[in-house]
Design a protein around this nucleic acid. Structure first.
Lengths: 197, 197
DNA sequence: ACGCCTATGTAAGAACCTCTCACTTTGAGG
DNA sequence: CCTCAAAGTGAGAGGTTCTTACATAGGCGT
């Protein structure tokens, strides 16, 4: 597979996506280069351009796979408890997703690709939002669902981003980041439930 | 100043920092290049290396200035209301800071510089955290302050990051992002206050 | 007033990078 | 079997970061 003997690779697109992910894991999104990915796939430097428009398109395609993985992890959640527990579970799952492969999360949100020029990514952020809306729908008034879903996403995303950016290092040791996420989401949800009082 | 006639520039370091910020504003953190900054300051490509170790050091120095600006904006906040309003004010201020100059925020949190190798940045993230702790200290039990401050930061940071990343475009039109921040922080704070019940 | 030292600038170049273009190879369908 | 289009190649233009050796001049002590 990797060491091919035919002129045509046969599965170059996928090989490049794998190499991209590996590279981002090793060197961060900025350290990723089309050349190095090509080298690892065992093809010439210009070969990748047969499959991707440019460097950003390679990162975008990788991000797209990552978004699909996030969807899968969300789909596995069972959310039958009251709102606070439910929100906490979602936040913890999101943070776990980020921490279990920081490179993947980096590609999705911090690789500098412009979502506006990659509509498939826009579409997938919309799906994330919709998944959260579906989860909240049983617990909050119809007209609040959209906004509340965005708030919950922000809470989870904020914890994940700050943690991966190393901004919480002095504050909470990394084993307790899940607790921050859970605690924030839980408090938020209690506040949401209280709003009608 | 810009077009100098002496061999020595006289204020190159500052000129470069200004150019850096300009460039990031125009082209994003990834579009920034040492060469172009040098060109704009009217010096040779190698001149910047007399003042900064490398490209990252230029971004880090720019980020440091930005953190100081954030501190200043926080210092201007008057926080004498009950927790929910107080938290909402902080979150809104943070998001406003991010939105009023997205490039600045990008340099601080999404330019790919490794905070661990720039201790002055670590120090400044610690100051942000401390400022939040001070704001919460009157409202929450001593042993919770650190964790709660991190949670509030995460909420504000999450809204700012998602919004600037274009992830909320379909959801909330940009004029209402402040309301998302306020609403999230407010709910969270109500939940925090309720925790003793 | 003079000269030296060190700060700060320059020029050139090595080693990477992205992306394009004209060319080659080869597998699959008519 | 023949051809054509998809997929891979090699060379090269133009960009980048960073280093090294050299040039300049401002400010210091004498």
């Amino acid at each position: 597979m990797a060491g091919r003997n035919t002129y045509h690779h046969g599965d170059l697109r996928n090989a490049l996506l794998r190499a991209t992910r590996e590279l981002v894991k090793e060197r961060g999104a900025r350290g990723f280069s089309v050349s190095e990915a090509a080298r690892r796939a065992g093809v010439s430097i210009s070969a990748p351009y047969r499959h991707f428009a440019d460097r950003d398109a390679m990162l975008a395609a990788t991000a797209q796979l990552a978004f699909t993985e996030l969807e899968t992890q969300f789909a596995a959640l069972v959310l039958e408890e009251p709102l606070p527990e439910c929100a906490a579970r979602i936040a913890v799952a999101y943070v776990a997703f980020a921490r279990q492969d920081p490179a993947r999360f980096e590609v999705m949100f911090a690789s500098g690709i412009d979502k506006a020029s990659h509509p498939e990514l826009l579409e997938q952020t919309r799906r994330v939002q919709e998944r959260l809306e579906a989860a909240l729908q049983p617990h909050v008034p119809r007209e609040e669902v959209v906004g509340r879903a965005a708030e919950l996403w922000a809470i989870a995303h904020g914890v994940a981003s700050l943690a991966l950016g190393g901004n919480l290092h002095h504050v909470v040791d990394s084993s307790r980041i899940d607790r921050v996420a859970a605690s924030a989401a839980h408090a938020w949800a209690r506040g949401v439930s209280t709003s009608g009082v």
